[in-house]
């Protein structure tokens, strides 16, 4: 069953023209000239209950706009959008009980009061029965190890602690969908890891659907099996993470340490990209032979001390996807 249905959704912002200078600002008041900027262009996808989806794209790709439309904050300019069977902005209050929303950089906590007070208020806002509130809070407190700072004022928390609090708070009312807008931005490795593990647990055990935007591909690898990639308002990829990797990440980097410098080496399938004498680095492009065959062939001919094979990381896969898109666009322009 799908809980989010996005069908041909477009969002354009109107920006009224501003004129420079003092006279210009007076003129701005009276003219109605504007430029339309399309943040989201004709996007369609559907998300099933219990899925974890990464929503990815460079800055200004329209990620936040999409999240805001799904949560009912913004209204699409055209297209149809249904979340939990409802049109989000029309049933905003009703849907909000079933949704958790975390905006990475905008805190809604009470800065000067202990963390517990913000949780407590949440209980009143969502009218939660004490038992439900308690058991959910205990669950989060334990998995996110929050007990040490429950009584500390929010202003004294580290960024990582604060983000854990925000995420815990978004789950207290047992939402069916959790939206996270850049939940790991600015966090250290350990904090990121803990949040990723927690989100995976929530998705797998509590069956909460997760939609998260991020710039960190590791978030997506750790939490999401599916990703949607957008660029300049357009949807450019929707599918599994491993599929995209297979499609684009067909390069591997092979570094070989020789016992002594073997001189020039000619091996089919491997292209030399760096030569430091005894250490040489090759690029392997997937073809009819495997990388192991190539390396073992080398090892049979030359005295090999050590060899390492690196698969391209997902970051460079994504980079490649963006580059391909840019190139396509350029070609299209040249033809047109």
């Amino acid at each position: 069953m799908s809980i989010i249905e996005v069908d041909g959704v477009t969002k354009t912002y109107r920006q009224y023209k501003r004129f420079p200078g003092l006279l210009g600002s007076v003129r701005s008041l009276f003219t109605r000239q504007y430029v339309e900027e399309t943040a989201v262009r004709d996007i369609s996808f559907s998300i099933g209950e219990g899925e974890a989806v990464g929503y990815l794209g460079p800055n200004g790709a329209g990620k936040s706009t999409m999240i805001k439309m799904m949560t009912g904050i913004l209204v699409p300019t055209s297209g149809s959008l249904r979340v939990l069977g409802n049109i989000p902005h029309e049933k905003r209050k009703q849907n909000s009980r079933e949704m958790g929303v975390v905006f990475g950089q905008r805190s809604q906590l009470w800065w000067d009061l202990p963390v517990m007070d913000s949780f407590d208020l949440h209980k009143y806002v969502y009218r939660l029965p004490e038992s439900q509130f308690r058991s959910n809070l205990d669950f989060c407190t334990e998995l996110l190890s929050m007990s040490s700072f429950m009584q500390k004022p929010v202003r004294q928390l580290s960024l990582g602690q604060r983000m854990r609090v925000e995420i815990a708070m978004s789950l207290l009312h047992e939402p069916r969908i959790l939206f996270l807008d850049e939940p790991t931005i600015g966090l250290d490795v350990i904090a990121k890891d803990q949040i990723r593990q927690f989100l995976r647990t929530v998705n797998e055990e509590k069956k909460v659907s997760i939609i998260l935007t991020t710039h960190d591909m590791k978030d997506i690898e750790a939490i999401c099996s599916r990703m949607i990639v957008v660029n300049k308002g357009n949807l450019v990829y929707d599918g599994s993470v491993s599929h995209l990797r297979n499609q684009l990440g067909n390069e591997q980097r092979v570094t070989i340490d020789f016992r002594f410098d073997p001189g020039t080496i000619e091996t089919p399938g491997l292209t030399l990209i760096q030569d430091n004498g005894v250490r040489k680095t090759f690029l392997f492009e997937r073809s009819h032979t495997t990388v192991f065959e190539c390396v073992s062939r080398l090892a049979a001919q030359y005295p090999v001390e050590d060899a390492s094979i690196e698969t391209e990381d997902i970051d460079s896969v994504i980079r490649k996807l963006y580059q391909q898109l840019d190139q396509k666009e350029r070609e299209r322009r040249e033809i047109g």
């Binding site: 904050i73 905003r92 909000s96 929303v101 905008r106």
Partner: peptide, 18 residues
């Protein structure tokens, strides 16, 4: 301007009264 109003709009309360 800084988007904190958005947090108000995803709560199950009347945004003005809240």
């Amino acid at each position: 301007n800084n988007g904190t109003l958005d947090a108000l709009l995803v709560k199950p309360v009347n945004p003005y009264l809240y």
